[in-house]
Computed example of a mutant assay.
Amino acid sequence: MRTPARVLAGLGTALVVILVAACAPQSPDHSSWTDQAHQALEDTASQVATVSLLLRLEREGKVPGKYQQVVAQDSESAVGATMAKFGGEQPEPRDDTTYRRVTGLMSDASDLLSEVRIAIVRRDAAAYPKLLDRLGDVENRLNAAAEDLR
């Protein structure tokens, strides 16, 4: 016969097990992890390309100010989400160097997107040409790293 205390204790134990399992990092195999790294790099490169296009269009006067801010903020947030998701994956020991490279590149891209957002909000158009050059460089590095994972 089950007493209410036993039932509650069993439910409490099950809840703790579920919560601990949900918080544990994922441990995909090498191939799956490499695919996820490749996708994370491509997603990040895509956001960098979007912001680069935004600055080029702004230079031509084709993008309203508030829209620039929204696009820059959305791209920055998307890269943050990609970093959080990928950073929660547990690489195999043989992937440690690649993990550091991928997360480093993504962090560089995130930092740069923050700088671009700040320049856009401040309407610092004089900073755009240099930011465009840096965006192109980061995008090339992200794409090259993604290709290396193929």
Rank of each mutant, 00 (worst) to 15 (best):
S107L: 05
V71M: 07
S52E: 15
P64C: 12
F86T: 08
A45H: 10
Q90V: 00
G65W: 15
A81E: 12
D74T: 13
M83D: 09
D43V: 02
V79T: 14
P64R: 09
T97M: 04
V51D: 01
Q90F: 11
T50N: 10
S77C: 00
S77E: 13
D111S: 09
L41Y: 05
D95F: 06
D96S: 12
Q90D: 04
D96P: 00
E42K: 04
Q39H: 04
A49K: 12
A72Q: 00
E58Q: 08
R94N: 10
L57P: 02
D95N: 11
G65F: 15
T44G: 11
D111M: 07
V79A: 15
E89Q: 12
K85I: 14
V79M: 14
M106C: 08
E58C: 03
K62Y: 04
L112N: 01
S52L: 14
L53F: 04
P93W: 14
V63D: 08
A78L: 07
Y99D: 07
E92R: 11
P91C: 03
K66N: 11
Y67D: 09
Q73M: 13
L55Q: 11
R56P: 00
A49D: 12
G61A: 07
S52A: 15
S52C: 09
G87F: 11
S75Y: 10
D111V: 04
Q69M: 09
T50F: 02
K62D: 13
S110A: 07
L55P: 01
P91M: 04
V79C: 12
E60L: 03
L53K: 12
R59E: 15
G80K: 06
T97F: 10
P64Q: 13
V102T: 05
P93L: 06
T44P: 03
Q68R: 09
G61D: 08
S75R: 01
G61N: 08
Q69F: 13
A72N: 00
A49S: 12
S52K: 15
V70K: 03
R100T: 12
S52F: 13
G61T: 05
A49P: 00
L57N: 15
G80Y: 09
D43W: 02
T82I: 14
R59A: 15
R100A: 14
M83T: 08
R101N: 09
Q47M: 03
E42A: 02
D96W: 15
A78W: 02
S77H: 08
S52G: 14
V102Y: 07
E58W: 01
R59W: 05
G61S: 06
E60N: 08
Q68D: 10
Q69V: 10
S77D: 14
D74P: 00
E60V: 00
P91Y: 10
T44L: 06
L53S: 12
K66A: 13
S75F: 07
Q47R: 05
V79L: 14
E60R: 08
T82M: 09
T97E: 07
V102S: 04
A40K: 03
S107R: 01
Y67N: 02
P93H: 08
L112F: 02
A81Q: 10
L54G: 01
R59D: 15
V48P: 02
T97R: 06
T82A: 15
D43I: 01
A84M: 10
